[in-house]
Simulated scan of single mutants.
Amino acid sequence: MSAAPNTSIDAYFDLVGQPAPGGPSLAGLARLQLGHIMAIPFENLNPLAGLTVPLDIPALLDKFTHRRGGYCFEHNLLYRHALDTLGYRTTPLLARVRVNAAPGVVTPRTHMLLLVEVEGERWLSDTGFGKATPTAPLRLVPGEAQSTPHGVYRLVPEGDAGDSFLLETDAGDGWAPLYAFESRPAYPVDFEMSNWYVSTHPASHFTRDLIAVRTVANGRHVLHNARYSFYAVDGTATRKELATPAALVHLLENTFGLAAGSVPGLGAKLSEIVSPRGEGFER
């Protein structure tokens, strides 16, 4: 008989770290955001294997507490649930991903993030943007370079309304665009629609490419198809290619901490991608 699903929010805090004592605070928000990102990997094994991606809280709790991760909707919906439980004021948003997008191209709203109001200010807080996920809250002010444990970011205003921003990261040789968003709220039906698209559409890279990211104190482990990379916080990077499905499963299990061997249908997909298929951005 299989074990009963673990649907208690206490299990989430056991996984990511207990919340700071007292009421909502910026320090408590930063602690929970970093703890979440370092405890729960970013990955797309379900859509790659042709499996559904449920977004209800019990399903997310059960998945994350059984050595699995997910992508933005999964991460940020559960993260928001935890913040709301702790009394934070959160607003869920949708963003248009600008990574690798040609100038002038309008991309769909396929990324979820949060605005959190705490200590009299608004902060961008995101736990699900792959290898470029900010590991600390970002103050919602334009043009200010903001350091996090894993990189420097800034928000650039877009348009004339004053509520639209482009998030950029310092790529070493200049600022690189990540995603654009407006500060108006999105709703569960919006996330369901976007989640359905990114998890099922044949043009979605989540249905075609193997992507996994695990953040650790000194950098990020990144897997994109058969290429494994480690991006250190000092700016150095190491890379290697994996040649067999077994090597990919071993890496997913041991370096990323994922129960990859138990994902139905994943083995066949890994067999298709053991050869490198070009560069991409591991989101």
Rank of each mutant, 00 (worst) to 15 (best):
P92C: 10
G265I: 01
A180D: 03
R122D: 04
V263H: 02
T91F: 09
R184A: 05
D209M: 14
P157C: 02
G151N: 04
A20G: 13
F230N: 09
A268M: 05
A226M: 13
G69D: 12
V97W: 05
I273N: 01
S194W: 06
A27K: 09
T107K: 08
D10C: 09
K131N: 14
E119G: 01
L94G: 01
Y88N: 11
G265P: 13
P92E: 08
T91E: 11
Y228C: 02
I40C: 12
L93F: 00
P185S: 07
L166P: 02
L248E: 12
R239N: 11
L270T: 11
A259G: 01
T200H: 15
V189L: 05
E253W: 00
E74K: 01
A11S: 15
A39S: 15
L34D: 11
R68S: 02
F64C: 09
R239I: 04
A203Q: 15
G120A: 11
R184N: 05
F129Q: 07
L266T: 08
R154W: 07
V249T: 11
G257F: 00
A243R: 15
L45H: 09
L115S: 06
N195A: 04
P177I: 07
R109Q: 12
L248K: 13
P202N: 06
A212I: 06
T244G: 00
D173H: 05
V105N: 04
Y179R: 04
L94H: 04
T135K: 06
N254T: 09
A203F: 08
N6Q: 14
H150A: 14
